[in-house]
Design a protein around this nucleic acid. Structure first.
Length: 563
RNA sequence: CGGGGCGUGGCUCAGCCUGGUAGAGCGCCUGGUUCGGGACCAGGAGGCCGGUGGUUCGAAUCCACUCGCCCCGACCA
């Protein structure tokens, strides 16, 4: 296409509202413009790139037997009420009423609608398995849209759903998605990590997230460079670092000491001169209406998902200050496990085998020293803590790293959650009704573009992987008014089109500097510059990524790009 | 929802404290000179200073309310 006729509104300066690189560059390079918080207009370049991404996704989904559908974004309330998610989704769901006052919502995801279709049509085991997908706009009323296209209220998602007769069928569908996702992200040129994930409110048994390391990310994952271990924060396990100071020897008896006004572990450390690792952190939580005392090493943080799993609670919350007073006889700053009989006491494994530690005395402004778990109080051990910097891999002791990452894909074994709640049943070979088992698999389309930009950019702009760049090649005659250059440019342009290179011809009457800057900014992988050496039959091929330029003959230029 | 910041030509920002003619750079338009990394000269267009109400002879500037946007936190199938 011809640049002079296109709408590519590049900016010289970074718009003030943009902070993360992908947001800045999407705006500066004229890919997108904001309409409202978390709502963006995708202009010409963004649309081209997103189309290419969707093309790749489509090919790979089709290759594993996916059948593409197009489902409504506007949904009636009833379907969501059946699954119970009309209430569960709360304020995250956009809701509206039609002219008759009937409740509708904008779809956040499509488990319900897919299950609704399946329920109406699938009758026999002979019709299974099915694998359905769509690439469609989703709406979520995010509490805080941010970071450009990374967290928005309207976005594109590829979501697929598998329906199988049994666990083995689901396992196979899951594995096919896992492999297809790898091919998709590989083809899009991304570097990613696959982590085991917590299934969360989706329910189900197994789940993996596809993550791209980036400071713009919102999730933390734990990886081991040596062993390849990778998990998200909710699920990651580790070996704790050694305590900073050795425990005092001997069977010492707990001994009260006065700690006026020292509430936090930090305060008490400063007061008694011992490191946080020599202290016990005591948290009172209320799990399914029953109080639980959770103990951690002073420097550790409670992992809420792990706590939830340990006590097998449906709901839990921190205890209110009044409850703590009532149950423990002291305020939150002076709590400890010694003498606690009215609630379950659980501790993180990092406290197992420790001796003579510091804990609250359950008496305001007093702590105890020489507290030994198992000896001075009864306790059950679980893995309760969040992995922290300095921890090592459980099996090998190799160092673990905590990496900020962006989630670009997520696959779930859903199980029977939706098929059961919505009454999807088919007859098996024995004529018996069975409930199919489901899987759900998502990819954030815009996030692929964003993470590519986050991964690949420099001071001059984007460096998009060829497969997802809006154009494959830009042809830049240095002076459009030079008849010879113009002619050569037209020739290369026609040739490049022929070769399927998806070329962009910069036929603008602009100075060369402007053309070079713009080409770099919008991230086209290759540029052919037609300039001073044209009389010798030479042009220049520039690689956007390496910035290397090589002289090639006019006749051989297009071949040089494709090789 | 809690905390912080910001709304002034298309973009980046100054002016606001201390009220009195709305500014700069970039971009845009016209003409000319230029043409290998965001040119130069000359001329020009473009702004109810987010909105509403108040104080005042007079408000971009002071006060109140309100709307929007960004950041941190909470939240995040």
């Amino acid at each position: 296409m011809r640049w002079s006729q296109l709408f590519i509104p590049t900016l010289r300066e970074n718009p003030a509202e943009a902070e993360v690189p992908s947001h800045q560059l999407l705006l500066r390079a004229g890919y997108v413009r904001q309409l409202a918080a978390g709502i963006y207009n995708y202009l010409f370049l963004a649309q081209r790139s997103l189309n290419k991404i969707q093309g790749i996704v489509r090919e790979e989904m089709d290759a594993i037997g996916g059948q593409e559908m197009y489902l409504p974004g506007l949904n009636p309330a009833e379907v969501w009420q059946e699954s119970g998610r009309w209430d569960v989704m709360g304020d995250n769901m956009f809701r509206l009423k039609d002219r008759w006052g009937r409740d509708l919502c904008l779809g956040m995801t499509h488990e319900e609608i897919m299950t609704y279709i399946a329920r109406g049509e699938l009758r026999s085991y002979k019709q299974l398995p099915q694998l359905w997908y769509q690439i469609q706009t989703k709406f979520r009323d995010e509490p805080r849209p941010k970071s450009g296209l990374l967290r928005v209220r309207q976005f594109l998602m590829k979501d697929s759903y598998s329906f199988d007769m049994d666990q083995a069928g689901l396992d196979a569908a899951y594995q096919r998605h896992y492999d297809a996702y790898c091919r998709i992200f590989d083809r899009c040129g991304l570097k990613y990590t696959i982590v085991e994930a917590h299934s969360g409110a989706m329910g189900g048994s197994q789940s993996h997230e596809f993550m791209v390391a980036s400071d713009a990310g919102e999730d933390l994952i734990v990886v081991c460079a040596k062993t390849g271990y990778a998990a998200n924060m909710e699920k990651a396990v580790s070996r704790a670092s050694a305590p900073s100071a050795a425990d005092p020897e001997g069977d010492l008896a707990p001994e009260e000491f006065h700690t006026p006004g020292k509430k936090s572990i930090e305060d008490v450390c400063a007061f008694d001169g011992l490191p946080a690792t020599s202290h016990i952190k005591s948290l009172v939580l209320v799990a399914d209406d029953k109080p639980v005392l959770a103990l951690l090493r002073g420097d550790h943080q409670l992992s809420e998902p792990k706590f939830e799993a340990a006590v097998k609670a449906k709901t839990f919350r921190p205890a209110h200050p009044a409850e703590i007073e009532q149950w423990m006889g002291a305020e939150a700053g002076s709590l400890g496990p010694v003498g606690v009989r009215n609630m379950r006491v659980i501790a993180d494994r990092a406290l197992e085998g420790r001796r003579n530690l510091i804990a609250g005395a359950n008496k305001n402004d007093y702590h105890l020293r020489n507290v030994t778990p198992g000896q001075h109080f009864k306790v059950e051990y679980f893995d309760l803590r969040q992995v922290m910097a300095g921890d090592t891999e459980v099996e090998t002791g190799e160092p673990l790293e905590i990496v900020k990452s962006l989630e670009i894909g997520h696959i779930f074994k859903l199980g029977y959650k939706y098929s059961e709640s919505m009454g999807l049943k088919v007859l098996d070979a024995q004529g018996k009704e069975v409930t199919p088992i489901m899987g759900s698999y998502g990819i954030g389309i815009e996030r692929i573009l964003c993470s590519a930009i986050e991964l690949y950019h420099d001071a001059d702009g984007m460096i998009l992987p060829p497969a997802i760049a809006p154009f494959g090649l830009v042809i830049t005659p240095v002076n459009w008014n030079d008849a010879g250059q113009r002619e050569a440019a037209e020739k290369l342009y026609a040739e490049a089109k022929q070769a399927g290179l998806d070329p962009l011809l910069d036929d603008r009457d602009e100075r060369p500097g402007v053309k070079f800057k713009d080409a770099d900014l919008i991230g086209i992988p290759y540029r052919i510059t037609i300039g001073k050496k044209l009389p010798q039959g030479l042009v220049e091929l520039v690689n956007r990524k390496t910035k290397k330029a090589e002289e090639v003959t006019l006749a051989g230029a297009i071949a040089a790009v494709t090789k």
